[in-house]
Design a protein around this nucleic acid. Structure first.
Length: 420
RNA sequence: CGGGGUGUGGCGCAGUUGGUAGCGCGUGCGGUUUGGGACCGCAAGGCCGGAGGUUCGAGUCCUCUCACCCCGACCA
C-alpha cells in the first residue's frame, strides 16, 4: 500500500474529547474513528490489526477442535427468560428494541443463552459430544459510562466459545486445554509475559471464573499477584474464604497491579444445562445434563491494551504478529534515482509477500519518520541518495534507536527471513 | 445514576464590560525547500451543539434540551 493511496492520514493533535492513550494514538494514527461515546469505527489500518488478532485467536481455537460459526445480533426474549437474565434488574446493560408487531427483542450483549438453545436442537446423543463452537461477534452493551477508548466500549468485538461435554472429566480436560490455548494466544499477541490467569468472580452461575488479566496501567481491574505460588486473584474476590480455598496463607504477601481483563472463561458444570433443560442420551439410554463451558476474549479490548502497553512518546508500537504492515518503506529526497530505486524495492517486497506501507509522498523526511513512528510499523526502511551511494538502504526497528545499513540487493531476503 | 467540566471552520484553541467571529494545524493553488512533523504568498472553509427567551443588537445574559469528557457507582 502506498501512503498516497491509503485512506486516512495521520494528525498531530488528538481530539479533545479523548483522554485515554489508546484512543488518542489510534485516532491520531488513523486506525479508528469515533462515532459516539464508546463506539468506534475501525478504519483500514485498524481493521487490519483487528483481523490479525482474530486470525491468531482463530488458529488457536481451531487447534482445540472448536468450530467457527456466527450467531445473530437480534435475540428473542424467551431464550433469556429461562435463566432470568432478560430482567433489566439482573442484567442492566441490555439494549432492547421492538419489532414492528411490538415484540420485544434484545440486542446481543452475550450469546450464552441463544447458543445453548440452538445447540440443544442439534445435540441429542453422547455420540454428538464433545462439541465446541466459537464466533467473532459484535457485542452491544448499554454501559452507563463508556471509558478508556476501545478498552471499554458499548460496541465491541469479542470471540466467544462454548463447549459441551458429556461428563466432568471430559469437561475439565477441555477447560484446561482452553486455558493453554489462551496462553498461546496471548504469547503470540506479545503480551504473554504480562498476562495472568486470575481467580475472579463467577457471577450468577459459578463460584469462580478464570480471567486472563494483562498488566496495564489503564486497566480497570486490580489483581493481587502471589508470584511464589503463581496465583493471581482479582480484588473483587479477595476475601478469607476464597484465599483459603486457593491455599493462600496469611504470610503470603501479594503484589497489587492494575490490569485489564483480556479474557474470561467460565466453568458452568451442569448448572446451566439443568436450568435450560439441555440434556442428551448416554450409552445406557439415560438422559444426562451436559457440562458447559464458556470462553471469551475481547478482541478489540486486546487491541486497546496492546496500544496502551507498547506505545511510547512517538506513537504506537505494534508487535510484529499484529502490525498492520511489517515494513514502512520511505524514500528520502525526491531525485529520480531515489524514486525509482524505492519503487523497485517496493515491488520486490510485495512480490515476496511482505506487507509494506510505502511512504511515497513528496514531503520532508521528518514527516515520514514521524508517521512511521506514530503508526508503529515494526521495521522502517529508508532509501536516500546517501544510502544509494553505497548501494544500500537503512533499516531501523521501531523498538530500537539503532540504524543498520544493508545492501539493497540483500534487504528483501533479510526482511523476509526476519518476518517468516 | 450521583458529582464536576466542556461544546466556536476537518482538528486544537482565543473571543475583553453584549456591538453581527479570530489564530495555529490541516486543505487548495503558486514558489523556495528536502535526514526528525520546513518556509513565503494567495485562497477556500464557521452563524458559534440545538430550541426558546431578554435586548435596538447575543458566541457573550437567562431557561430548557442534546452531546461529549472526567471522578464515583456499575462492569453475568
Amino acid at each position: 500500500m502506498k501512503t498516497t493511496q491509503l485512506f486516512t492520514k495521520t494528525r498531530k493533535q488528538a481530539p479533545a474529547d479523548e483522554v485515554s492513550k489508546n484512543a488518542q494514538l489510534l485516532i491520531r494514527a488513523g486506525f479508528i474513528h469515533k462515532e459516539m461515546a464508546g463506539v468506534y469505527t475501525y478504519l483500514p489500518l485498524g481493521l487490519k490489526v483487528v483481523e490479525k488478532i482474530k486470525q491468531i485467536v482463530r488458529e488457536e481455537m481451531n487447534a482445540v477442535s472448536s468450530q467457527e460459526l456466527i450467531m445473530t445480533n437480534l435475540q428473542s426474549s424467551e431464550k433469556w427468560e429461562t435463566t432470568g437474565r432478560w430482567d433489566d434488574k439482573t442484567v442492566d446493560i441490555w439494549f432492547k428494541t421492538r419489532l414492528k408487531d411490538d415484540t420485544e427483542i434484545g440486542l446481543a450483549w452475550s450469546h450464552e443463552e441463544p447458543i445453548v438453545e440452538m445447540l440443544k436442537q442439534h445435540i441429542s446423543s453422547y455420540k454428538d459430544l464433545p462439541v465446541s463452537v466459537y464466533q467473532f461477534q459484535t457485542k452491544l452493551r448499554n454501559e452507563l459510562r463508556a471509558k478508556s477508548g476501545i478498552m471499554r466500549g458499548r460496541e465491541f468485538v469479542m470471540k466467544d466459545m462454548y463447549s459441551i461435554c458429556v461428563d466432568e472429566n471430559q469437561h475439565n480436560d477441555y477447560y484446561n486445554a482452553v486455558i493453554e490455548a489462551y496462553k498461546k494466544v496471548y504469547d503470540r499477541l506479545g503480551i504473554g509475559e504480562d498476562t495472568y490467569v486470575t481467580f475472579a468472580s463467577g457471577g450468577a452461575f459459578t463460584k469462580f471464573s478464570h480471567e486472563f488479566q494483562t498488566v496495564c496501567e489503564a486497566g480497570e481491574d486490580k489483581i493481587h499477584l502471589y508470584k511464589d505460588k503463581k496465583i493471581a486473584v482479582n480484588e473483587e474476590v479477595m476475601n478469607e474464604e476464597s484465599l483459603k480455598s486457593l491455599g493462600i496463607e496469611a504470610h503470603d504477601k501479594p503484589v497489587e497491579v492494575n490490569c485489564s481483563e483480556v479474557g474470561n472463561i467460565f466453568n458452568f458444570g451442569t448448572d446451566k444445562s439443568e436450568q435450560m433443560g439441555f440434556n442428551f442420551t448416554d450409552e445406557n439410554g439415560q438422559k444426562q445434563f451436559a457440562y458447559l463451558g464458556s470462553y471469551g476474549i475481547g478482541i478489540t479490548r486486546v487491541m486497546g491494551v496492546i496500544a496502551e502497553k507498547f506505545s511510547d512518546e512517538n506513537g504506537l508500537v505494534w508487535p510484529q504478529s499484529i502490525a498492520p504492515y511489517q515494513v514502512y518503506l520511505a524514500s528520502v529526497g525526491e531525485s529520480e534515482e531515489v524514486r525509482s530505486a524505492t519503487d523497485k524495492l517496493y515491488e520486490e517486497l510485495m512480490a515476496k509477500g511482505i506487507e509494506v506501507l510505502y511512504d511515497d509522498r513528496d514531503v520532508r523526511p521528518g514527516e515520514k519518520f514521524a508517521d512511521a513512528d506514530l503508526l508503529g510499523i515494526p521495521t522502517r526502511v529508508v532509501v536516500s541518495e546517501k544510502t544509494l551511494a553505497e548501494a544500500s538502504v537503512e533499516l531501523k526497528k521501531r523498538t530500537s534507536k539503532d540504524v543498520s545499513i544493508v545492501k539493497i540487493t540483500e534487504v528483501v531476503d533479510k526482511l523476509y527471513k526476519s518476518i517468516n
